[in-house]
Every structure is written in structure tokens, then in C-alpha cells.
Write a protein that binds this DNA or RNA. Structure first.
Lengths: 377, 377
DNA sequence: ATCCTTTTGTTAATCTGATTGACAAAATTA
DNA sequence: TAATTTTGTCAATCAGATTAACAAAAGGAT
């Protein structure tokens, strides 16, 4: 066990990051920062002066208070930092340059053929994005990559994605790090989305939630006490492989009866008259089969959510992916089932919400990892 | 979000606790502490001087090194701190006074009738234990209580334990805190045992493990990254209520098909010729039914463990309770099933071990919470 | 208008911790 | 015996936050 002691350097860095994190999602005056952090106003002033000097923060126009002197809010300069967000999928990727204010400056789509060096197109697009005018090299903080699992976020390696052969066993992290000299952060789609929602109003103020990404598979990202839930070896949650049928169908993962085998949209619709979740939702008021299938989907998901929440209590579930369409129909079904069945001694009931539908969220959430890790304390 | 800044006070306290934690389980020289913490030798010396002065630490006789000057190891004084550990069960409790070196100084058993003030006997035994000769009041650090779940460790309230009516809804934490003026820490048996194993050789060096306590119920304690896994509201894991049969028997918790309904020993043995786990184990070589039942038990437990490890990857499972008897027979059964079915991209296989069988472990693990929390950083 | 109160933001002096760099102490090796 | 290695201590220094004072900027009371 190597544990590091604290010293003045650490203290300074910690407090600086603390202030930056506070300013990440809203502007605050020096006095307000002092109140929220427990720092004295004097210390806050010193830190603010340094951040102003470094060009990370700027003063906004003064704001009147109910009583007393006006305060001048500080805001994070959007141009204080940039990151490149890359969203990988089966046959290509979307990539974009994002500033720390959450604006996509430029973006790009690439299709991949699978021939030659798979990383070459990525290197090119990164090269191109990082030469965007007005972006100084030293302001480019890192590269965030959102990819379908399974992968090893720590070593930056994509493992053995089913139906995703293109990227089989590619050490994307180290290789891009090598090529660009920038830190690379890799996470699966759902974890990436979950991480993006944390601390934002889009997550309804919760810092203990499950993000459930249902489309051709079932992905999960769990935020517990404001941090991505990670186990040994930085393995992140795979709710898609919770067993919900002990005598069920075999899954590619080697187990049987996995949630994904039932709740992934193609699996749910297999053998029915529906070809997409949208089609099913649109038929809800006319076709009893649609109603039945949605109830089934809610049943499958709820079974897995109950198992999760009995292990790591969450207070809400955010739906993402196909389920966003007609979310208001399935939300109460899941909510009722989950709360009826989970242990809940003295806890608030679990709420189900739609996740944020922000334009470009796939690129934004990927890039966000780079910002988040660099402000991480 | 209230997040506190760091200052010199924090730094000092952090480093002091860091050193004390390092010395908790083995003696180390100043130079070795410096190497492990990253502190300079000078700082380590200063901290050590203070700890020596406070009587928390003492010097051992010098030890020769392969080369260079001899080093004088520092050890935590066993009498540096004491805690009272209380293990509650259905009809009474065991209580003991424990020193920080892990020695039980005095202990006591109480039977409870359920009449009158349930807390009065506890107050008396605490009073009595805390007046043990040679124990200064200011060295008594707290009271740790290990109880069958469910309970709310944070508010110190026992909730609604099935088959445990005596303690229904008792606010044991605040009440004993009020009566004694000491901090009170409450956790369920399994969590308490898990926490005790963490950081000790008894947990085989792991800091990501599940402790599975199987007897009349199924309790679980998960240690992830060296800390007890807690969700929102400080809810701890309840693997006993993972669904392993979607069409199974109703459980007292309101769900159906919970692990506990199948794997708790009385449930497993119900309707068989066996009256205890020991009887079953002893019959393994002569009675095929015993073999079948043990395989069943392994099957049930494995199903739940797989679900757990797909959410929060662990590297080992420690068996406690009845399963300790004949553990070497069931261990490989569980190990094989779990590793065959869980996601394990690039991870080491999960190992199953017996938990420590230390005399008085119930009292020790309860008391340990008080020590642990006070050294917690 | 003027004073009082409240709140914000700044400043210089101070405090408190770890670090630096030197050194003595205690052992082994050449 | 001298050189080397490692441990542990000391005084001087450094680097942060804090303290306590103050000026600045508003609103409300007289």
C-alpha cells in the first residue's frame, strides 16, 4: 500500500481545483466561493488572482446583492481549456473539438473501412481538430474516447467487443497518447454519459444514479457519491450482464439469462411485428402487443435495477438511447416495479427520468472526461 | 454541494493519521514510514516525536539493516486507545473492551428478556467495561455495534429486522451516544466483518472483496478499493436480496426469489434429512443428497456473486458463518461457477477463501469500527 | 444629505506545516 | 582505519492559509 502524504503543494493544487470545479457549471463571487469551500475570503482572493492571471477565469459584471456591496462573479473562461471528444461506433466515429464551457467548436464524421491502420484516420482527425484556429496547443488538455464496451479504461485498451470486430484488442489509449502527446481517456458509452450527467442539472441534482443506455445492447453507468463506480482493475458496471433468467438463453459473455439477451431492443422485438422501439411506442394506443412488450421491457430492466440498488443504493435512474423516445410511457412502469421490489428501509423512492437530450452529447460527454479528470481532486 | 478546502490543520491531521494507520498492523522505522508515505525523513521524525509524546506510539529495540545504521521501529501502543465492541443477536449480546492492538481485555455476555428498557442492560455493561482498571477515560475512543441488518448505520437506527423484534426501530446509536458521551458506530454483522478483514493478512492482501456471511440468513459486506461499499443514504450491500429466481418464492422483503430464501442454511435444509450445515458436510462422503445440496448452495451463491462482480468487480470472496465448516469443499465449487460465468476481460480470476477464524472476532470486529473511523482519513 | 449597517474584496503580518540541506550516529565494507 | 551506506535530527527556509484590519460599495434610517 503506497499512500501519499499531504503537503503545501498538494493543498494549493487541491484548493485551486476545488475552485475551478465550483466554477465549472456556474459563476460565483469570491465571497460565495469562500462560503462554499470553507476557505477564508482572503485565500479565495489570492487563488482567484492567480486563476485570473493564468487566464482560466474572468470577472463578470458586478451583481447587486439584497444588502451590502455588489459582488463580481467569476466565471470559467470557455477558452481556458479544450478537449477532443471522440465517439466510436461500429463503422466509424464522430469527433469534435470542445471547449471547457461545453461548446463544440468544430466536429467531424469519419467512416472506416477496416483496411490498413485503423488508428490512422483517428490520428488525422485529431491532428486536424487540434489545429483549429485560435486554439493554443497548451490549452488542449486531452482526448476523451467513448466506445462500446467492453474495454479497459485504465490501460486504454478496447477488449473484445461483440459485433465490433474493427477495434478488437486495439490499445487505442497508449497509441494515441504516443502519437499526440496528450492524455487519453477511454470509457464505455454508458459510463461516459453517466459521468457527463453527474453534477449537472440534467441529472436532477442526483449524485447517486444509474444511467441505462438501451439500444442494440444494454449499457450501464453508475455514479455513486458523485463518482463513477469502479471495482478492482477499474472495471465498470455491466448491468447488461446481470442474470435475470436463471434458466434463460445463453449470452455471448458465457453466462445465461443476461439482461441484454432480453432487453436489448432487437432482442425484445425479435419475432414480433415491430422493427424499432419507435414503432412500438407509436403503436401503444392501438396495439395491445405493444403494451405487452413495453411492460416486458420494464419488467426486465426493473429486475436488474432492483439487484443493483440492493447492492449500491441509487436514488434515480436516467434512461438513454432508444428508450428516450416515449420515455414518459415506460418511466412509471419501471418506477413502480422497482420501488415495489427493492429494499428501501427509510430511503426515498427511486425516481426514473429521461437523460439529457443535448445536441452533440456523444462528443460532449467524451470530451468531458478529459476536463473532468484534469479537475479531479 | 459542500466541499471543504484543505489547509495546514488538515494536512497535519491527515499525515498523522496516515502514519498511525501504517503502524496499525505492523511496526515500521521512521525511514520506512518516510519511504511509504512520501514524507521526508525530517517530517516523519517530527510527527513521530509528537506521537511518542502523546503516548500513541513507542520505540521498539533497534533492528539491524543489511547495510547502514540500525533502525528503531515504532509500534502503536496497544494502550493508546480502547473501544467497546458489542455484538447484538436475537436474545442478547456479547460485549467486550478491546485495545487498539486487538486484545480483548474484558468481555461479557448478556441475555435480554425484552422487558423494560432494552437499552438499560447495554448501558450497564458499557459502564462496567469502561471502568476497567488501567483504562483512562480519554483513551476510550468509541463504541462499535455489530447487529443483524437491516439498519441505518448513519443515523444509528436499527430498522425492521425480520425475526429480531426485540430491537425493532430502536435508535441505538444516538441513545447510547447520549448516555455515554462516546461516538457510536453501527453496522450490520457482515459489513462489520468485511471491514475488519480489510487491510489485514486475513483478507489475503485484497482490498476488493466480498464477505459472505451465511447462517440463518445471508449477509454481505463489500470492500471496494479498501472501503466499505456504500450507496446513497449510507445503505450497504444486501446480496441476500439479489433475485436469483425470477419466478421464485416470496421473500419477507417484498420481492420474490431472493438469494436468502434459498441459500440461508435453514432454507436450504428445509425438507431434507439434515438439520445443520455441519451434518451435511459430515455426510458428504457417504450421502449423495449432501453432495447435491452443497452443489445447490454453491449454485445459488454463485449466481448472486456473478451479478455482484459484474457491477463492482471484486477479486476475492471470503466465506463466513456456517460455511466456514468444510469451507474447503464448497470453495472450489463456487470458484469454478463464478469464474465460468462472470465477465472477466483481462481480470485475474476470482478466488474464494475462508474468512479469518480469530477468537472473539465478533467483538473484535465491532470494536474495530471505532478504531477504523477514528483513523479514517 | 448624512450616518449606520451590511457585505465584498484586499492587504500586511502572522502562523503552521512540510521541505531543504547539513550533520551526527551507527552500522557494514574495503 | 577509511570509505560507504543508511538512519535520525536540527536549524533555516519555503509555501500555503489564516488573522485582523481596512477600504469599497451598496441599502436603509435619521
Amino acid at each position: 500500500m503506497r499512500v501519499v502524504a499531504r503537503n503545501a503543494d498538494y493543498t494549493k493544487e487541491y484548493n485551486r481545483k476545488l475552485v475551478l470545479r465550483l466554477l465549472r457549471h456556474q459563476p460565483l463571487s469570491r465571497a460565495e466561493i469562500a462560503r462554499r469551500t470553507g476557505l477564508t475570503r482572503a485565500s479565495t482572493s489570492l487563488i482567484a488572482a492567480e486563476l485570473l492571471n493564468d487566464g482560466l477565469v474572468r470577472e463578470m459584471s458586478p451583481v447587486a446583492n439584497p444588502r451590502g456591496r455588489t459582488s463580481t462573479p467569476l466565471m470559467l473562461c470557455p477558452e481556458a481549456g479544450y478537449a477532443i471528444g471522440i465517439y466510436l461506433n461500429r463503422d466509424g466515429c464522430s469527433a469534435g473539438l470542445v471547449d471547457i464551457g461545453g461548446n463544440i467548436i468544430v466536429s467531424n464524421e469519419i467512416r472506416m473501412t477496416g483496411e490498413g491502420d485503423k488508428l490512422e484516420p483517428l490520428r488525422q482527425v485529431i491532428q486536424q481538430l487540434s489545429q483549429t484556429e485560435g486554439v493554443q496547443r497548451e490549452r488542449l488538455l486531452g482526448i476523451g474516447i467513448s466506445a462500446p464496451g467492453p474495454l479497459d479504461g485504465e490501460s486504454g485498451r478496447i477488449l473484445n467487443p461483440p459485433r465490433f470486430d474493427l477495434w478488437h484488442q486495439v490499445e487505442i489509449g497508449p497509441q494515441l497518447q504516443e502519437a499526440t502527446g496528450l492524455p487519453v481517456f477511454l470509457a464505455n458509452n454508458a459510463t461516459c454519459l453517466a459521468s457527463y450527467h453527474c453534477g449537472r442539472p440534467e441529472s436532477y441534482g442526483s449524485s447517486n444514479f444509474l444511467l441505462l443506455l438501451v439500444d442494440s445492447g444494454v449499457g450501464s453507468g453508475v455514479i455513486s457519491k458523485g463518482k463513477v463506480l469502479k471495482g478492482a482493475g477499474y472495471f465498470t458496471s455491466e448491468l447488461g450482464h446481470t442474470t435475470i433468467r436463471y434458466d434463460g438463453r445463453p449470452c455471448a459473455c458465457g453466462n445465461i439469462g443476461c439482461l441484454e439477451e432480453y432487453a436489448a431492443i432487437p432482442k425484445l422485438l425479435n419475432g414480433t411485428g415491430f422493427h424499432s422501439w419507435k414503432e412500438l411506442v407509436d403503436a401503444l394506443d392501438s396495439d395491445p402487443e405493444a403494451v405487452y412488450l413495453m411492460a416486458q421491457e420494464a419488467e426486465y430492466l426493473s429486475a436488474a435495477i432492483v439487484n443493483l440498488t440492493n447492492l449500491v443504493r441509487i436514488d434515480s435512474v436516467l434512461l438513454a438511447g432508444d428508450l428516450l423516445y416515449g420515455a414518459e410511457r415506460i418511466m412509471p412502469l419501471i418506477e413502480r416495479r422497482v420501488n415495489r421490489r427493492c429494499l428501501s428501509y427509510g430511503c426515498q423512492p427511486i425516481r426514473v427520468y429521461p437523460s439529457a437530450s443535448v445536441p452533440g452529447i456523444r462528443i460532449l460527454s467524451a470530451a468531458d472526461m478529459a476536463f473532468d479528470r484534469l479537475l479531479r481532486i
